[in-house]
Computed example of a mutant assay.
Amino acid sequence: RQAGFGAPRYLEAERLAPFKPRSLDIDVIMDLMIHDLDLTLLLTGAEPVDVRAVGVAAVTDKADMATAWMTLNNGTVANLAASRVVREPARRMRIFWQDRYASVDFLNNTLHIYHRGAGTVPGIPGVRDEVVDLPKRDALAAEIEDFLNAIVAHRPVFCDGIAGRRVLAAALQVRVAVEAFLQH
């Protein structure tokens, strides 16, 4: 969480990937959406209290695309979409606070933060844009390195078992809502 920003009021994320014949034993929620659920819980420090979701089994017998709308216990609303059956990949998140907005493009490693105040953004009066280039790195390799450091060097992991359990519980809530939608 960013110090001084407080919990976001609203956030939205999309994680879209072309079809690959891997991980077909799980749905798109556990395959892709779980990462944005993890970020949502990390950024808000809150838990889902109302979860609504829809999904479609477009190619496999499990949900290949899903959208979830969640209200968290701190009032944040999150809208998350994931698909593993699109032509062009996308991994974006937009986070809205009372007086600022952040847009992250995980594929291009860019972060734009738009602040209210004396502005320079064309077409949006009173808003300034701060651009942050994020370091390019392989997220999966970083996760494995973090895990190995925890074992070998006895260092704490970034995402511990408690956080993993919280995000799994949220993913299961989304899955239940998607499965109920698919039953109709």
Rank of each mutant, 00 (worst) to 15 (best):
Ala90Lys: 14
Ala153Arg: 15
Leu11Gly: 02
Met70Thr: 03
Tyr114Pro: 01
Gln98Pro: 03
Gln2Glu: 11
Ala118Leu: 14
Val28His: 11
Ala63Glu: 06
Ala90Arg: 15
Ala177Cys: 06
Ser83Trp: 01
Leu140Glu: 12
Ala58Gly: 12
Leu172Ile: 09
Thr44Met: 07
Arg155Ala: 10
Leu72Gln: 10
Asp36Met: 06
Asn109Lys: 05
Phe158Arg: 15
Leu148Met: 02
Phe158Val: 15
Phe158His: 10
Val121Asn: 07
His154Asn: 15
Ile34Val: 15
Pro156Cys: 13
Lys20Tyr: 12
Leu72Val: 07
Val174Ile: 13
Ala180Met: 04
Ala17Gln: 09
Pro156His: 05
Gln2Ser: 02
Ala63Leu: 04
Ala57Arg: 11
Ser83Met: 02
Ile162His: 15
Ile34Phe: 05
Arg22Lys: 01
Gln183Ser: 05
Leu39Gly: 05
Gln2Arg: 10
Asp160Ser: 11
Arg92Glu: 11
Leu111Arg: 06
Ser23Ile: 00
Val77Arg: 07
Arg52Asp: 11
Ala63Gly: 03
Ala13Arg: 02
Arg165Asn: 12
Ile29Asn: 11
Ile151Lys: 08
Ala141Gln: 05
Ile113Cys: 07
His154Asp: 14
Arg15Gln: 14
Glu88Gln: 14
Ile162Gln: 15
Pro48Val: 08
Glu12Leu: 10
Arg94Thr: 08
Val174Tyr: 15
Leu43Trp: 03
Met33Phe: 13
Phe147Lys: 00
Phe19Arg: 11
Gln183Lys: 13
Ala81Ile: 09
Trp69Met: 07
Arg22Val: 10
Asn79Thr: 10
Ala3Met: 12
Pro122Leu: 12
Glu130Tyr: 03
Leu16Pro: 04
Leu37Arg: 07
Gly75Asp: 04
Leu42Gln: 14
Glu130Thr: 05
Thr76Trp: 11
Ala7Val: 06
Ala66Ile: 02
Arg175Gly: 05
Ala150Leu: 01
Arg84Asn: 08
Leu168Met: 12
Ala57Gln: 07
Glu179Thr: 05
Glu179Val: 03
Thr110Asp: 13
Ala78Leu: 12
